[in-house]
Simulated assay, not measured.
Amino acid sequence: MKLHSFFAAVLFATVGSAFAQNATSQDGVKIGGNSFLSKFAPVGALENQAAMQYAQTMQQAEKQHALGPDNHPQVLRLRAIANKLIPYSLKWNERAKQWKWEINLLGSKQINAYCMPGGKIAFYSGILDTLKLTDDEVAIVMGHEIAHALREHGAERAVKSSAANLFVKGVEIFAGAKGYDPNIAGSIAGGAANVTMLKFSRDNETEADIVGLDIAARAGYDPRAGVALWQKMGMVNKGAPPQWLSTHPAGQNRIAEIRRHLPEVMPLYAKAKALSLNGIAPYQTNVKGIAPVTYP
């Protein structure tokens, strides 16, 4: 085994995620509990820190006249969608019942949105305008971002980062004790750690996609919108780095993963809309060149 491969294998064993085996519900997506690593992070403190950072961001945006007012049509739209999604989010994390949820719109060309620990959501106008998101597609994005907070990926990432740093330091000490150059060993270990952390980040993105689909479908939003969403994203993100160098899975991989989970979430959508699966029309987005998304 090559040295860098050995380091990667050790790091996976050291900071790999472990999930509970019980599914969260009988219907919908089947996924275990939150990573046990998140239990080692001060989640409450992270939520308080996130709330402070979020408030500062909103205050700064307001000073720059970049914060959408409460009566802005897009703000009203985002909050209406959030109000439908949040009740179906609570089963994924007991703490979410006590969160003081907020959602705001920031005026920026960035194609971005996020949900911080504690339910602090922000959408950038760029993602709405550039991608021309339908309500279903907004729900897919929002469900995905909410899922990150519910699954405590921020806390998990903090613990993994600390573990990776300890791993690199341990390799340096071990190499020095064996007569090898600790700087070279540390550099190799650091490279393996970075690649491994990127893999963890992509895994978290995939998990958020899956949980977000479940939440959106239960709230009555078409999960097939996720396919169209990533086709739109591909149109404006052609210069994306290779998947293995990115914190996000490649668009085609995400589309394939979404399609793989449609059998789990389409019945939830049909139930929410009081339709039979056979009676659901193909999903048609609002951009030319994207074919209707059918099921099955």
Rank of each mutant, 00 (worst) to 15 (best):
K97W: 03
K100D: 10
I103S: 05
N104K: 14
N104A: 15
N104R: 13
L105N: 02
S108I: 09
K109A: 14
N112W: 05
N112S: 07
N112M: 06
A113P: 11
Y114W: 12
C115W: 08
P117S: 06
G119H: 05
A122F: 04
G126Y: 03
I127W: 02
I127S: 04
L128R: 06
D129H: 10
T130N: 10
T130P: 01
L133D: 05
L133Q: 03
D135G: 09
D135T: 12
D136P: 00
D136M: 00
V138F: 01
A139N: 04
I140D: 04
M142D: 04
H144K: 05
H144W: 01
I146F: 13
A147R: 02
H148A: 08
A149T: 09
E152V: 09
H153N: 06
A155D: 07
E156W: 00
A158M: 15
A158R: 14
A158L: 14
V159A: 03
S161M: 13
N165A: 14
L166Y: 12
F167L: 09
K169M: 13
G170F: 05
G170D: 12
G170T: 09
V171G: 02
E172H: 00
I173A: 15
A175F: 04
A177Y: 09
K178Q: 14
G179E: 02
D181W: 02
A185N: 02
G186P: 05
I188M: 05
A189T: 07
G191E: 10
G191D: 12
A193Y: 07
N194H: 13
V195Q: 15
M197W: 09
F200R: 06
D203L: 07
E207L: 08
V211H: 07
D214N: 07
D214Q: 06
I215K: 05
I215N: 10
A216L: 12
A216S: 15
A217G: 13
A219N: 10
G220D: 12
G220N: 09
Y221V: 14
P223Y: 09
